[in-house]
Design a protein around this nucleic acid. Structure first.
Length: 574
RNA sequence: UACCCGAUAGUGUAACGGUAGCACAACAGAUUUUGGUUCUGUUUGUCCAGGUUCGAAUCCUGGUCGGGUAACCA
């Protein structure tokens, strides 16, 4: 990870060979040509503290921090807090938590508001040099004069105020002499520019609002365009990476740095991503929270970092995902399967295996010695020998999954059915002899016999079974609430609705299924909040960090296991 | 509409004038005490039309389609 070796040997075990993304190419080119005169690569992650971070931000976090790490540079966390009316410390805290959780530590922690004094001085400088003026028109008037893409704008009648008058007015704006909206400071550029952003953009506006950090010190606040580039410049950011919608702003970004004659940070834009079966915009996420359509920002169905964390995602999986999706200038739609696959890939190697039955079907072993309990060895993780094994209790009354029994099975169904023998994982072969139904014909119990010689799961005579199913001992099982999560939206693109139809109609009504009392093996009774397990043959589950109580864990299903039987069935059913 | 940006298998992403590759998905098979994992194989692609060139995904021209911008938001 050190920058000492610009060209690590090909047999370096560090990271597998991957081609450079376009930003890495730029960085390497800059390094090669010594563009920054020996300055380290400096990046920054610049969230506005007005919402929670989501998986899209994770991409930016991994890019910015990853670049610094890869090239031996530094990355700052900087809050872009220039709009006091929408920002709050609640978000400042959550954002820091999330960045750390994703796995990065910033070099400097800054706020745009740290630089308000300097920014103000720069504004005065521009005024003095005739590059900015105070406009006393209303929002509407200014908007009207901006012109259109085809027609040039018209100059403000206040455009040619003297530097002295501008300075006086600007100082009085700062002093609080005017109400909101009375004046703005504008750059004096060119009202005929084809790039509308350059038609005398607003630099400062009056806002008599309490700021989460500077309190009531200021009543004028710089606009994004008059803050971001300068903040980058102050921090000697070499590569200022942002999303595509800021592309047109780059002209103004450069203009400010050039006119102020300060460190020439460069801005580069990459495409944000979309994820299938979910929404990502702050506005829509807020809609879900405010409308109580989810339980909060950290609802495990949310694509927020805290939601994914609560769901059971790991930082490693998130980072692997971000690495895999790449960086480009084309707005991509990533399949949710990629995210899920990244989690499975990580947890497969690390998660301990346990057995749990979600929808229990009682099995009585008719030849089991009454009252006997057998403690059987179960491997904790076949992918990791060092994870060891545990003892699981077995008795004459068990629960198996309802889905693992069919009275009249199709030919491809290998699991339990009348007259058929299957293996109980790590236990015995059992054969189903009788199906017990209630008055209305529902199957309520299976009566089976077990083969004592098959203890551990192998028959001495070498006979094979086509299937192994999971189970729990009825008298030893604990009952736990299990929450099964599915896609937030029912169609890949929630935006793909007819005009006038609310995207919320695409929400998946079955995105959460609560199982009040699943039957789980007893070792799970004291599972720690946040710990993750593979329930064999079902999926990866995480102990909920919010609602679990000591000795009463609640499990969230993070992701299912791949299930080729379910897939085949689904295909059959159309 | 104007300006800017983009377009490579189903989805992403490489190839930087010289054999279109990789991952995920899909499909088929092998292994398997998880219908998991792992392994092997297969299918599917350069938006269109011209031009330059021995040779074009790549360079040029025109078009098509998609996205962004037109806040006293960031």
């Amino acid at each position: 990870m050190s920058s000492a070796e610009p060209n690590p040997p090909a047999d370096s075990p560090a990271t597998p060979e991957r081609s450079l993304n376009f930003i890495e190419q730029i960085v390497e080119e800059d390094l090669r040509t010594n563009r920054w005169g020996g300055l380290p690569v400096q990046t920054r992650f610049p969230p506005e503290p007005n919402g929670y971070l989501h998986i899209g931000h994770a991409k930016s976090i991994c890019l910015n921090f990853g670049l610094a790490k890869k090239y031996g540079g530094k990355c700052n966390l900087r809050f872009d807090d220039t709009n006091p009316t929408t920002e709050d410390t609640e978000y400042v805290d959550s954002i820091q938590d999330d960045v750390r959780w994703v796995g990065f530590q910033w070099d400097g922690l800054y706020y745009a508001s740290d630089y308000f004094d300097q920014l103000y001085l720069w504004a005065e400088q521009l005024i003095q040099e005739g590059l900015a003026y105070v406009d006393s028109q209303s929002v509407d008037e200014i908007a009207k004069q901006r012109g259109t893409s085809t027609e040039p704008g018209v100059e403000s009648p206040f455009r040619n105020r003297s530097a002295g008058e501008n300075l006086d007015l600007f100082r009085r704006m700062k002093a609080g002499e005017f109400p909101d909206g009375a004046h703005v400071l504008r750059a004096k550029i060119d009202m005929a520019q084809t790039h509308l952003i350059m038609r005398d953009p607003v630099l400062y506006r009056i806002r008599h609002a309490h700021h989460h950090r500077t309190g009531d010190k200021w009543c004028i606040y710089p606009m994004y365009d008059f803050a971001h580039g300068q903040c980058d410049s102050i921090e000697k950011v070499t590569h200022s990476i942002c999303t595509l919608e800021f592309e047109t702003h780059r002209r103004l970004y450069d203009w400010c740095l050039e006119k102020l004659r300060i460190f020439p940070s460069r801005q580069y834009e990459f495409a944000r991503m979309n994820l299938t079966y979910t929404v990502m915009s702050k506005r829509r996420l807020l809609e879900l929270v405010k409308g109580n359509l989810v339980s909060g920002w950290d609802d495990p169905r949310m694509p927020t970092i805290c939601g994914l964390r609560r769901r059971g995602y790991t930082p490693e999986a998130i980072r692997a995902f971000c690495e895999r999706i790449g960086v480009a200038r084309f707005i991509s739609t990533i399949e949710m399967a990629w995210l899920e696959d990244a989690l499975r890939d990580d947890l497969n190697k690390r998660a301990l295996r346990v057995m749990g039955v979600l929808k229990p079907l009682k099995v009585v072993l008719t030849n089991w010695p009454a009252g006997q309990v057998d403690w059987l060895d179960a491997v904790n993780n076949p992918e990791d020998e060092s994870a060891g094994s545990r003892k699981v209790p077995f008795s004459g009354t068990l629960y198996v999954e309802q889905d693992d029994f069919m009275e009249t099975p199709p030919k491809q169904f290998f699991r339990l059915s009348p007259g058929r023998e299957v293996r109980l994982r790590y236990a015995y072969f059992i054969t189903c002899n009788e199906v017990v139904k209630d008055a209305s014909g529902n199957i309520v119990e299976l009566r089976c016999t077990y083969d004592p010689a098959s203890r551990g799961g192998n028959s001495p005579d070498g006979r094979k079974v086509k299937s192994t199913i999971h189970w729990v001992s009825a008298e030893h099982a604990i009952s736990s609430e299990v929450r099964l999560y599915d896609h937030l939206c029912r169609q890949p693109d929630p935006n793909d609705v007819p005009a006038g139809v609310d995207w919320k109609t695409t929400l998946n009504p079955n995105s959460l299924e609560v199982i009040p009392s699943a039957k789980l093996e007893p070792s799970l009774s004291d599972a720690a909040p946040g710990s993750k397990f593979q329930f064999e043959r079902l999926g990866y589950f995480c102990v909920d960090t919010v609602d679990s109580r000591p000795a009463h864990p609640i499990f969230n299903r993070a992701v299912t296991l791949k299930d080729s039987w379910a897939k085949a069935q689904k295909k059959e059913g159309g």
